[in-house]
Computed example of a mutant assay.
Amino acid sequence: MSKHERWSALLELLAAEGRLDVEEAATTLEVSAATIRRDLDELAEQQMLVRTRGGAIAHGVSYELPLRYKSSRHASEKQRIAAAAADLVADGDVVGLNGGTTTTEVARALALRASAPGSGGGAGAGGGPGPGGGPVLTVVTNALNIAGELTVRPQIKLVVTGGVARPQTYELVGPLTMGVLNEVVLDVVILGVDGLDPQLGVMAHQEDEASISRLFAERSHRVIVVTDSSKMGKRAFARICGLDRIDVVVTDSAISAEAAGRLTDAGIKVITV
């Protein structure tokens, strides 16, 4: 197991339990206790955990894994979800994308489709690039990593909000972000979320990110939520919006029949992959 894999595994355990014991972690990862101690010391130097006697604890009550360590979780499910969500976008649409691992996969799926020869797929698509060979899609995002991947795609017109960057998720937040979003109109927004509760709706760990995602939803004609089934029934700190604002949820086939039924009863189309 490489150092990066160990660190990802340790942060996964910390996110699940809120604390780590050196000996228990060493047994779980099948490495020496000395290796775990070195890993925890290095992670503490990066302010990704707090070292304690004999282990480590998470920062704060609601622990949030940095994006680069979340990308390996449910990777195949996220790619299938992303492909299905991209198919719901029509050529010529103005698409909003917030930050997150699943929306990053959506951006990649949209880029591949836009660059494919004879591209013209998507629900209600007219086919091919715009007039004069212009962009197939317009993407509005507050995620720096998504912007970095799409800026080299001439088939996609990219609009990046301003704002203050959050290092954990690469999302831009704050008044500057809101100022740009208040000036645009979106055909569809595809939102990644940290939790989906049948009573409270969809949520994020951070209130500033939740407020931007809420504004994305308000500025869009259609709202699509992309999330793997592990987020179903989960709550996070900050509410984005209620289920009444959501049109479609794209998730994996591990979603329970009860959870899918609740979403359907709320008037949401559920797509499982």
Results as ranks from 00 to 15, higher is better:
139 V>A: 05
216 F>A: 02
150 L>Q: 13
193 V>L: 11
78 K>I: 11
231 K>M: 10
78 K>N: 13
106 V>M: 05
172 L>Y: 01
52 T>K: 10
21 D>I: 07
231 K>V: 12
143 A>L: 00
209 E>R: 12
131 P>C: 02
190 I>K: 08
27 T>R: 14
18 G>T: 09
13 L>V: 04
231 K>R: 15
83 A>S: 06
180 V>Y: 06
4 H>K: 13
261 G>A: 09
51 R>F: 08
157 K>T: 12
23 E>K: 14
153 R>T: 15
114 A>N: 12
271 I>Y: 02
26 A>F: 13
33 A>Q: 09
151 T>Q: 08
62 S>N: 09
176 L>C: 04
77 E>A: 15
220 S>T: 01
130 G>D: 03
157 K>I: 01
42 E>N: 05
221 H>F: 00
199 Q>W: 10
13 L>K: 01
43 L>A: 07
34 A>M: 02
76 S>I: 10
220 S>Y: 08
73 R>N: 06
129 P>F: 03
214 R>H: 14
125 A>W: 04
221 H>A: 07
133 G>T: 03
75 A>P: 11
150 L>P: 04
208 D>P: 09
251 T>E: 01
252 D>W: 07
236 A>T: 08
140 V>M: 00
232 M>S: 00
181 L>K: 05
205 H>D: 03
60 G>E: 12
61 V>C: 03
202 V>L: 04
42 E>R: 15
145 N>W: 05
127 G>Y: 01
143 A>K: 02
59 H>C: 08
168 Q>M: 06
233 G>T: 02
74 H>S: 09
251 T>S: 06
267 G>M: 07
87 D>P: 07
254 A>D: 14
24 E>D: 10
218 E>Y: 06
223 V>P: 01
9 A>W: 05
203 M>C: 13
180 V>I: 09
149 E>S: 13
156 I>A: 05
29 L>V: 06
109 A>S: 15
49 L>G: 12
